[in-house]
Design a protein around this nucleic acid. Structure first.
Length: 599
RNA sequence: GCACCGGUAGCUCAAUUGGAUAGAGCUUCUGACUUCGGAUCAGAAGGUUGCAGGUUCGAGUCCUGCCCGGUGCACCA
């Protein structure tokens, strides 16, 4: 299906024009994007200057030639009325600017793109595995799980929305040395009543008690080690307890994911890969990629990278010394590098993805560099056809600039954090809309409270740390989710009151008010924004787009009466409200945030 | 010590292959209302983008050196 969006039509034609003038040019670099400053036009292409320089041509003269070719193509293939209304001009050192003819082309272009909300399906669609959230069994989900969960969920929604095939996999921590202590604790100190009451709290208590006991009494540690060995060798009793701990944890996860609206296609935890780990190590050793060292088995640098870029080397006192990746501990146990290698192998063999995205804390960047490099040495063909990306993120800080914790220094549980967000938004809704029924106010409070937490998390550049602030996330002005939700309800309300948009009336409509024109042009960029979100895995692009859109809508709404206007202006404006509401709603949906009809 | 990530307005943050005059919000001040939902909108003020060089038509963005903050550096994940 041919594209109907202006930037896409322009780009395709421009690429053909460039190809005619300069056959050697890499046409992928020829991109048409919205002008940052509308003074210069609606769309621009800045790539011609670079191409001209590469080919040792004068940039402006080259732009002239491309423009001439572009206009020839436009005339010969000028069946699309939209395209005729794109007026090109050369500016500055060789920019190409395009202006949409508001009278003939703007509205047709917008209506043509409206059915798909100004998005074009990805071509070709890719298969993408998204690995995110990854909480640990027997521990509460806490504030540290927010970013991976909201980022990962948003990214998978964005990919899906553009037509990519997405597989989400929650790689839960359901295996490892902590289960030795947990098993000893379960056997000796389990409080059944407490387990009934709050299973995760009780499991956490068992672990802490046992951890302390182990520090005081080495024989206790030895017990834990033995229980772990029994578990790993398939002891039925320990397996049963371990499974029960997973079940109890999954109940907790499901409750929180349910509240967050997050789902996974698969939950293949670490234990799933356990049977494959010996083979992974044996194979890596057989291929000479790993070798024994100090009783452990480790992967060392292969020397293919300069020392500064080699994650398998670290500089100590001016000397580059090995910093290997351990894949088997000296006690014979395996660690997460081994599991991650097996996981990667399994994912590629099972799903044959084009891309695997790991949404994990930035601090693990060195681990992922080692993982990806080791995998590339182990399975070169598979690695060559799969893009592996670690999508890292920073910390959440308290207002004292230190990691966000309770006053007593404990980690904050996600469930409690969501409760507080909802309580706070409940107070706001109760105050602002006392006339609404209780049940409605409760629903609004839930949607607004949970949405505020997510939006605060998605708005900053993911790599930077951000300061957690109840007041800011729930503020009704500024770049917050309550503001976006509010604008969404406003736009939706007008459409509900004004009735369905009668498109036949639009045939004779032309946007004339500045606010109408600006809003309409901005709507056209929605799909482009989603594409950049997906390209760089940065949901904040979408947040900022939606905030800008809400601002354009607000100014339009202020300046242009809708329901009071005469036809066909009334229908045109109603259509603008409708499109805005739909884009805002869809954008919030991709952020994982609900849009109440009333608030 | 070495590596990675940051350093942008008083504060919190944006800035899409390097693009045109670095943008918002909060705060402060000034305006708009017999509201199609004022949880709104408009205007003003606020900057040597940590510092110093370099690359080029053009640098917050790329390169080099330095300063400051955070994080990581063998059997936890």
């Amino acid at each position: 299906m041919p594209s109907s969006l202006p930037h896409s039509i322009l780009e395709q034609r421009l690429r053909r024009a460039v190809g005619e003038v300069l056959p050697s040019a890499n046409l992928d670099t020829v991109q048409v994007r919205p002008c940052p400053d509308p003074k210069h036009g609606d769309y621009q292409c800045t790539a011609l200057i670079g191409l001209a320089k590469q080919a040792r041509l004068n940039p402006r003269a080259f732009a002239q030639e491309v423009l001439a070719a572009y206009q020839r193509l436009q005339q010969s293939g000028g069946d699309a009325s939209i395209e005729v209304g794109m007026v090109p001009e050369i500016a500055g050192p060789g920019f190409l600017n395009f202006r949409i003819d508001v009278r003939t082309s703007l509205l047709p272009a917008a209506l043509a793109g409206a059915d798909r909300l100004f998005c074009e399906p990805a071509r070709p669609p890719r298969t993408v595995v998204v690995d995110f959230s990854s909480p640990n069994v027997a521990k509460p989900m806490h504030v540290g799980h927010i970013r991976s969960t909201t980022l990962g969920d948003c990214l998978q929604r964005a990919f899906r929305s553009l037509g990519h095939r997405v597989i989400t996999d929650n790689h839960i921590g359901d295996w490892g040395t902590q289960f030795g202590k947990l098993l000893v604790g379960w056997r000796h100190g389990l409080d059944r009543a407490a387990l009934e009451q709050d299973p995760i709290a009780e499991l956490e208590r068992l672990y802490r008690t046992e951890n302390a006991a182990g520090e005081a009494d080495p024989s206790r540690l030895e017990m834990a080690r033995q229980e772990l060995v029994k578990l790993q060798s398939g002891d039925p009793e320990n397996l049963a307890v371990w499974k029960e701990m997973i079940r109890l944890s999954q109940v907790q996860f499901d409750a929180i994911y349910g509240r967050l609206g997050v789902t996974f296609d698969h939950t293949l935890g670490e234990s799933f890969y356990n049977p494959q780990l010996p083979e992974v190590v044996a194979d890596l050793m057989a291929r000479g990629i790993a070798r024994e060292s100090e009783g452990a088995v480790a992967v060392f640098s292969d020397g293919s990278l300069p020392p500064k870029e080699d994650p398998f080397l670290v500089n100590r006192d001016g000397e580059w010394v090995p910093d290997p990746a351990l894949i088997r501990k000296s006690d014979g146990g395996f660690n997460y590098m081994t599991t991650d290698l097996a996981t990667l192998d399994h994912r590629i063999r099972t799903w044959a993805p084009d891309e695997i995205i790991y949404v994990v804390d930035d601090r693990q960047a060195p681990h992922f560099r080692k993982l990806f490099l080791t995998f590339a040495r182990w399975k070169p063909e598979a690695a060559a056809r799969t893009r592996l990306r670690h999508i890292g993120f920073g910390k959440i800080l308290g207002d004292d600039g230190r990691p966000f914790r309770t006053r007593s220094g404990d980690t904050i549980r996600l469930a409690e954090l969501l409760d507080e967000a909802v309580e706070r938004s409940q107070r706001l809704v109760d105050e602002k809309r006392p006339e609404l029924p209780d049940a409605t106010r409760r629903q609004i409070a839930e949607t607004v409270g949970v949405g505020a937490v997510k939006y605060q998390d998605l708005l900053p550049n993911r790599q930077s740390d951000y300061v957690f602030s109840w007041d800011k996330m729930l503020a009704l002005t500024g770049n917050t989710s309550p503001y976006l939700q509010y604008q969404c309800t406003r736009a939706g309300k007008v459409v509900r009151e004004g009735g369905p948009v009668d498109r036949t009336r639009l045939a004779s409509a032309v946007p004339t008010e500045e606010a109408e024109i600006v809003l309409l042009k901005y709507l056209l960029n929605y799909g482009l924004t989603l594409e950049s979100v997906v390209a760089e895995c940065r949901p904040n692009y979408l947040c900022n787009y939606l905030y800008e859109l809400a601002g354009h809508y607000s100014r339009f709404y202020e300046a242009c009466p809708v329901l009071r206007a005469g036809e066909p202006v009334r229908t045109l404006r109603l259509a603008l409200c409708d499109l805005t509401a739909r884009v805002l709603q869809d954008g919030l949906r991709i952020l994982g945030i609900g849009a109440p009809e009333v608030m």
